[in-house]
């Protein structure tokens, strides 16, 4: 077993590139998606948001002009306002309702499966279906308003879809209906992940249940809450189908949202520059939410 044996081996030295070649070939779709679509397309859009593209994209740079226009367009400002209201309310209500439901279901109740099935089924439905059915329920002539009026309270008014001031809350009701089930499920999984012994310890210490939740359980579930928060937030920025189905942005411009602005500018109004600028703003919004999360999630891990 010396140099002679060594040389007689017809061992091919696997080069860096051909080692596990099959794995690399199989990963080509993933690499293309990551590089061409997620990085390439995003960069393309960002770059073109600084051009004066209208009907067709063209590389004639105009600096921040598109953004100046964007932030002085009333429709965009309304969209951002709506997104803020919808976002903040949706965040708070989804978390609160989701947690209440999860906590109730976690109390070892009967019919837990039935309740969970009812709370979660809207999540299986599309935003289009959600929007349409709530459009019908909130219909002033036949829906909720008419039902209350029939009971004798004839001056009762609840017509959010035709009232510019509160239309966004009408959409919120539908959005909450569709999305809280998911958050409930995630939080319920988090609750189930908490050690039974914690509950036993608090029982022996005689701590009331609500206090246990508030001061023991919720702090323990911080990572789960952060995940839920990011999910809700990332979903909010993308809100589009729901508005299209429920109000088409109306009455007037009252329920416009950024995602719809982008679509309309890009594919209907043939004002690409505005569409690119608006979508880049959406990307900025997502990253404002995402960066602290990524930092919390992955920033700490680097140290070990």
């Amino acid at each position: 077993m010396d140099d002679k044996t060594l040389n007689s081996q017809k061992n091919k030295r696997p080069t860096r590139l051909t080692r596990h070649l099959n794995a690399k070939i199989a990963s080509v779709p993933m690499i293309l998606t990551a590089v061409v679509v997620f990085v390439g397309c995003s960069v393309w859009t960002i770059v073109h948001s600084f051009t004066k593209s209208r009907m067709l994209p063209k590389l004639e740079f105009v600096g921040f002009k598109q953004y100046d226009r964007l932030w002085s367009t009333k429709r965009w400002l309304v969209s951002v306002d709506n997104l803020l209201i919808y976002g903040i309310c949706s965040l708070i209500f989804t978390l609160v309702i989701g947690f209440i439901l999860a906590a109730l279901l976690d109390r070892k109740i009967r019919f837990e499966n039935t309740f969970r099935t009812i709370f979660l089924y809207p999540f299986a439905l599309s935003f289009i279906v959600t929007g349409l059915v709530w459009q019908w329920i909130l219909n002033p002539d036949f829906g909720l308003q008419s039902l209350v009026r029939e009971t004798g309270w004839s001056s009762f008014t609840f017509d959010p879809l035709n009232n510019p001031d509160i239309v966004i809350y009408g959409i919120l009701i539908a959005g909450l209906w569709q999305g809280t089930g998911l958050i409930m499920c995630i939080l319920l999984a988090g609750l189930r992940g908490i050690d039974e012994d914690i509950w036993k310890a608090t029982r022996i210490d005689g701590i009331p249940i609500w206090k246990t939740y508030l001061f023991v359980i919720i702090p323990m579930m911080k990572p789960v809450f952060i995940t839920a928060l990011v999910l809700i937030a990332a979903g909010i920025v993308k809100v589009y189908d729901l508005v299209v189905a429920q109000t088409s942005g109306g009455p007037g411009l009252a329920s416009e949202v950024p995602a719809k602005y982008v679509y309309d500018k890009m594919f209907l109004a043939q004002n690409l520059g505005q569409g690119f600028a608006a979508s880049t703003m959406m990307l900025v919004m997502v990253f404002i939410i995402l960066i602290p999360y990524l930092y919390l999630q992955y920033g700490g891990k680097r140290h070990d």
Binding site: M1, L6, Q9, N11, K12
Partner: peptide, 13 residues
Amino acid sequence: GQIFIKGKNVTWS
């Protein structure tokens, strides 16, 4: 380094 099994260099096998 190198690994031999039964006198055969298997370092890259």
